[in-house]
Amino acid sequence: MPLFNDEIKKQLSAIVSQLENGVTIVFFTQEIECPACSDTHSFVQEIAGLSDRLTLRIYDLVKDSETAARYGIDKVPAIALLDNADNDYGIRFYGMPGGYEINSFLGALLEISGKKQPLAAPVAGRIAAIKKDIHMQVFVSLSCPYCPGAVSTAHRLALENSHIRADMVESTTFPHLMVKYNVSSVPKTIINETHELIGAQPIEKFLDILEKI
């Protein structure tokens, strides 16, 4: 049974038709003990089926552990997005990007394909000046209208600077991480395990923290 009905498929097709170049969706799954994996598997398959510009590669976290390690994947379901030359910008989705989060997923596809809105010059300069390794984990829930904004901002930072990696983490799929990082409001962004940012803040507020690290 498909996840997308015809109506949604039509809307999604219109959006992915705006892709400027190819994007590769790298999906990591696991056969057992991953209740979210099978739905997310259908999700990436159906999305990839919407455009010739989308390529899907599927790996198993256990069987393909070397590949998983290469992409830094430590939990499933996981999605990494690569550009048409297989460049990895560190953009990840852990858990299914359904609900409101479909927007950050589609946004990431478009941006990696080359369809980006220009950044203001001072912001671009501040991003380029970041030289330390940064890892951002943006915790979301799928019923949160603000969350895709925070995810897209973190992903855009990752796209612009190779020192920066950014994950969307669907909170209820990874309850142990909710406990570990005290997530009781979303979006909540954990930066390098040492800093946190609550809410969908503008890119300048993200940069204020990244510059302190």
Binding site: L3, I8, I15, D39, I102, N103, L106, L142, S143
Partner: peptide
């Protein structure tokens, strides 16, 4: 709170999305 994730609709699974991204 609407059914924002997966829901049955007339016995069929339907994923409900909140697409807001078309205006790029």
């Amino acid at each position: 709170i609407r059914c924002t994730i997966l829901c049955y609709e007339d016995g069929i699974f339907a994923m409900e999305f909140h697409l807001t991204i078309a205006a790029l």
